[in-house]
Design a protein around this nucleic acid. Structure first.
Lengths: 154, 154
DNA sequence: GTTACTGCAAACTTTTTGCACGACA
DNA sequence: TGTCGTGCAAAAAGTTTGCAGTAAC
């Protein structure tokens, strides 16, 4: 919800370019879906992206949003992030190395940065069953607000 | 698929005890669902647990398996793990500190152990939006078999 | 002008829920 | 014996797909 304008523009340019490079069409719908994910750092779900895109293209359909986000994911332009609690798929347009704090109460997902986290490596790489492409550290817990709520219940 | 008998028994005892401690009934169905997750280290999905449980209680229903796994999750006896690729919920009865390698090709999830991973901590704990209860390092990539398959396609 | 993309509607998969019967404590 | 848990069936939620029209290149 507080991604700087320049960062949004940078992400949109990246996505537009990647579409062209992949031989795909740069449609209004795709760019508005791109804008909706790129403009949020709250890791929005499909429905939220849909609502944001519909504010600019009233006739856009939910299945286009699904298809578009799946396509972006395939191209590596966004990635799915899992909340601590089950629910609809959520997406992240932040392509910089980062990690997450996830709240098991309300579904909050917050980006975390740190060289020490980026540097985490498997203890015995030779015993891995494959090749690592990405490392994500997930800190799971309860956010301050949910902690307050849990105390009120007791 | 290769959890030692003693470890399975240990997990079953833990689950049975926790049910009693929570004032819940220790039913045949619950214990067979427990056995099915406890006996696998392949992070089975609901359907797989259902099939394993049905081999011992033919009349067990899928919704009981859903309800039971959700209950176990609430009690902290199992946890959901997310594969790299979307699909049905998968469960893990391994309560020891551990981490995961996940393959984006086939859905493989393999447990990893290492003190260096357990010790990973947030770089600026005071700036976290809440309290951390668990840390999981996820190595995402492609397993050996999927790497081979991807080469064959080119 | 082609062809890929979109919107619509319908289907599909996964998960949840209400209710009456049966089993655990 | 009382109550919790289960099975059944139906519904809800989330996601995918086929097709005909539309827009991008």
């Amino acid at each position: 919800m507080a991604v700087p304008i320049e960062e949004i523009e940078r992400r949109l340019a990246l996505i537009g370019g990647a579409l062209r490079a992949a031989g795909l069409r740069v449609t209004q719908q795709r760019m508005e879906v791109a804008r909706a994910v790129a403009a949020s750092d709250a890791h929005p779900d499909v429905e939220t992206v849909y609502r944001a895109a519909r504010a600019r293209i009233p006739a856009i359909s939910l299945d286009t949003v699904y298809r578009t986000l799946a396509e972006f994911d395939r191209l590596g332009l966004v990635s799915q992030v899992h909340a601590a609690t089950a629910g609809p798929s959520r997406y992240d347009a932040n392509r910089d190395a980062h990690h997450h704090f996830v709240c098991r109460g309300c579904g909050l997902i917050q980006d975390l940065y740190g060289d020490s986290l980026d540097a985490v490596a498997p203890p015995e790489p030779e015993r891995l069953p494959g090749r690592v492409e990405r490392v994500e550290v997930r800190f799971q817990g309860l956010c301050d607000e949910c902690m307050r709520k849990e105390q009120d219940d007791e």
